[in-house]
Design a protein around this nucleic acid. Sequence first.
DNA 1: CTCCAAAGGTATGTCTACGAGCCATTGACG
DNA 2: CGTCAATGGCTCGTAGACATACCTTTGGAG
Lengths: 232, 232
Amino acid sequence: MVEHAQEALFRPVRAGNAFEETVERLMQSIRLGVVAPGERLPSERELATRLGVSRVTVREAIRSLQENDYVESRRGRYGGTFVNEVIPKPAPGKEFGDLHDVLTLRAVLETGAAEAAAGGSLGPAERRGLRARLEEASTSSLAEYRRKDSRLHLAIAEATGSASLTAAVAESRMRANELLDHIPLLEPNLAHSNAQHERIITSILDGDPATARQAMAEHLDGTASLLRGFLV
Amino acid sequence: MVEHAQEALFRPVRAGNAFEETVERLMQSIRLGVVAPGERLPSERELATRLGVSRVTVREAIRSLQENDYVESRRGRYGGTFVNEVIPKPAPGKEFGDLHDVLTLRAVLETGAAEAAAGGSLGPAERRGLRARLEEASTSSLAEYRRKDSRLHLAIAEATGSASLTAAVAESRMRANELLDHIPLLEPNLAHSNAQHERIITSILDGDPATARQAMAEHLDGTASLLRGFLV
DNA sequence: CTCCAAAGGTATGTCTACGAGCCATTGACG
DNA sequence: CGTCAATGGCTCGTAGACATACCTTTGGAG
């Protein structure tokens, strides 16, 4: 029997209760920029169906987001729950998990996604989407950079056509962002990052998996080094 | 708003109820060979703690495994729940999920794991473990090959030192195995597979990430082609 | 101006899962 | 040969999550 392997398989079956998990998901969709400020979340009934959770639980989760000013709800037809402009609490000051764990998984998933995206056949819509996200990220302000950056990286994962891979990247990015929220984001880094994004997307659109992978690896190494430096 | 990205983020928060999830985990530990036939599962109380689930739920899960002859329980000190030799139902005839989804995620995770394992610093215990799993797989019979193969691949993931990556590989392997259970496993494939394992492990032990990745990619391509052929 | 579809808001009974405790059994050790 | 620690077996009350149903608000369509 492999003692060590048990740790991976006999880990907790559920991350938290249904309420906490739901809050986490909605937070992800906001923090990763999937639903931008001013935009509307899906209706409570739709969320309940999509998330596989009762509407009561969805409402409790939304309520907790309201109390922290992340969203506002309006009644009536054409109402809904809307994302607010300001994100009040950038980081709840969480404990750093295993840094190596997060960075290793992120590197594996994202370099793999870049390679797979470049190796697959992209439709016109996906090509346009990638270019649009690249443009958004490169023209974004410092304040909203993290969100635009995440949207770009998520778009790359989506381009692989694997929903599981996309979900895994989203999850991994949330964990990485929790750490990144604790270190400064500087203009020079941002410019460098944009250049790297450019190279990654170009390689993907050109169908060059090897270059896409390498470019993504270099891109991730940058923040990985920063994190290792700041958080030691 | 990126419509497509919502599909990844607004997926169900929980795979099933606590009972089903627990059964699934215990099945994984048996099917992937983490707990071999004749060996004992952790005690009910320990499983309850590790899996973050009540002991009642653990017992219900174990009971359902008992009814399918996967395990037997003995009372008293030095008792416990033991894995049976024969696995009665190789495949419950499940529906094939998205083949592309499974194979893409598996390729990303496992090639990434091989590369990371080769790039990291391996302790003596881990090196011995890898060699032992390789030996086990190469000398195994056809009947137990799938299990020994999984243990080897899990050991590679463990060698990265990332628990999350190991867990992801385990999950991904279960999904892939469900598909592989529907296609024949032939002696020639097995010999070829063993040669590839040899090359993968050698590269990892030699600290050659590029070769490790490539060898793993070729290894996975084999079964991927088989699957695509058989399941179209 | 009226209607009504679609959204959020509320209430209730049911069922799952949990925690906590106790019982029954077993085999090694003194 | 008795003790006892650790295991599986069992019960019961509580809390979380559920499905379902209905109410209230809103603004565009007719």
